[in-house]
């Protein structure tokens, strides 16, 4: 079931990439999708992590949130670089608890931390994530745990 819907998705991707809808190219597309599915199956990469169907409904909200965070954090880092109205950098290494239940949730959280400039995930453990922050303010904001509730994770693993 999962494989079939993944195949449909890949075929849609093929059609959009190609932009040609002649029977020849569509059948080549079908062969390509079949080959991709076969190899992906051999590699064992199709599972709930690579293909989080159950999380799709949560992504738009998360996406809007992360975009806003990226813009805000960017302004902060740009201020630091240009030294306009900043207190100077104060690099910190902090350890945060990791409430996410699944590997996917953990990875999304860690990547969200990295995506917002000013903080970089250094180490990811089962229960903790080590973060290098550019400023104390950035570290404090992460410690408040506001981002972690936004991560689409709760539904994972059923």
């Amino acid at each position: 079931m999962k494989v079939i819907s993944f195949g449909v998705l890949l075929f849609a991707l093929w059609a959009l990439l190609s932009g040609y809808f002649s029977p020849l190219l569509l059948s080549l597309g079908a062969i390509s999708v079949a080959l991709t599915l076969y190899l992906a199956n051999r590699m064992n990469v199709i599972d709930h992590e690579s293909y989080p169907l159950h999380l799709y409904s949560k992504f738009p909200l998360f996406f809007a949130y992360i975009m806003r965070e990226i813009v805000i954090a960017n302004i902060d880092v740009v201020k630091e670089i240009l030294k306009i109205g900043s207190k100077g950098i104060s690099p910190q290494v902090i350890k945060l608890p990791l409430p996410q239940q699944t590997d996917l949730g953990r990875a999304i959280y860690a990547n969200s931390i990295t995506l917002t400039p000013g903080t970089v995930t250094v180490e990811l453990d089962k229960n903790f994530v080590t973060v290098h922050a550019l400023t104390k303010e950035g570290a404090d904001e992460l410690l408040s745990g506001e981002m972690s509730v936004m991560i689409p994770d709760q539904l994972a693993d059923k």
Binding site: L13, T36, S50, L104, T121, L124
Partner: peptide
């Protein structure tokens, strides 16, 4: 992180 991201990317790269 690398594992999860690669899992997403590899089928797309092959296609």
């Amino acid at each position: 992180i690398l594992r999860v991201v690669s899992k997403v990317l590899i089928p797309l790269i092959i296609l």
